[in-house]
């Protein structure tokens, strides 16, 4: 049992400074209770990766992470034979042919590692949308029966099912089949009220009034159709910056000075300054 109830999820995640709403606490609870993978989708910087880390931390589980990227293949995701070691062995001993496809020469990659782990494990498959479509087939296979067949070694079944979290920034649709296999949680930019609380949890020492102003200002920026809307991560950076500069209020001067922390594109800064009536910057 991972969690006893959604309420317990909320409490234990709060204890590790991750604030869960109803959607988060219910789906995190169900993923554990039903033994299904949890797919979290949403823009960058809204807490998808952090959620998996927080679940691991809150439950004392081991975290195993598979970071996806274009060109990721089985050798990097699942396992690979240690060919250097194999070569050395063959060169040393011509009769070693039967030995070199054994445990000793196996390089475990995250998926195999998670399947073989005999302690409670959170498997984070991060930014799944960056991997090629074929990788989804591989994931689907493993997330269906939690076993892996290595021709030379046989079939390895999970000693205990890992708690699986997949994330996606939704730069493309993941396949229907994979989505059907998973519970789904869409994470989005939070309401200003929630974002204020998140910032307060993440930035100790920040005055509540600044957190409030930050959250509302960021909400306004998100309404502007920018190239890249500021994420929670950027709100937090912004809070750190203001704190470091010793600002006690988020007035126009303070914003003008620090806008680059939240808006990374020059055209976004120009647009925001124009729309919000900030003094022009060079």
């Amino acid at each position: 049992m991972w969690f006893a109830s959604p309420d317990e999820v909320r409490e234990r995640l709060t204890a590790v400074d991750y604030l869960a709403d109803d959607g988060i606490s219910t789906s995190v609870f169900l993923a554990g209770a039903l033994g299904k993978p949890l797919l979290t989708e949403g823009p960058a910087g809204v807490g998808k990766t952090q959620l998996a880390k927080a679940v691991a931390e809150a439950t004392g589980a081991r975290l195993i992470r598979l970071q996806c990227y274009e060109g990721l293949d089985e050798a990097r995701a699942l396992y690979e034979w240690n060919y250097k070691k194999q070569l050395l062995r063959i060169q040393a001993d011509d009769d070693a042919w039967d030995d070199i496809f054994s445990e000793e020469f196996l390089l475990e990659r995250p998926l195999l590692k998670a399947i073989r782990s005999d302690e409670p494990t959170v498997l984070l498959i991060d930014e799944t949308d960056k991997a090629d479509v074929e990788v989804e087939g591989l994931l689907l296979e493993i997330l269906s029966d939690y076993q892996i067949t290595i021709p030379e070694l046989g079939t390895i079944s999970a000693a205990r099912k890992p708690y699986v979290v997949l994330t996606s920034n939704a730069t493309r649709e993941l396949s229907e089949a994979l989505k059907r296999r998973c519970l789904y949680l869409h994470l989005d930019y939070p309401t200003p009220e929630r974002e204020r609380d998140i910032v307060l949890a993440q930035v100790p020492g920040l005055p509540g009034s600044i957190a409030e102003q930050l959250a509302r200002t960021v909400a306004t920026l998100r309404g502007l159709e920018l190239k890249k809307s500021p994420s929670i991560a950027e709100t937090i950076d912004w809070a750190h910056t203001l704190l470091a500069l010793g600002r006690t209020e988020l007035d126009e001067a303070a914003i003008g000075e620090t806008l680059g922390v939240v808006l990374k594109h020059n055209s976004d800064q120009v647009r925001a300054a124009k729309e919000l009536g900030l003094p022009a910057r060079s």
Binding site: G23, S25, S27, Y184
Partner: peptide
């Protein structure tokens, strides 16, 4: 609501 959403709305 969230239990239905997690299982049905992808």
């Amino acid at each position: 609501r969230e239990a239905y959403a997690a299982t049905l709305v992808k």
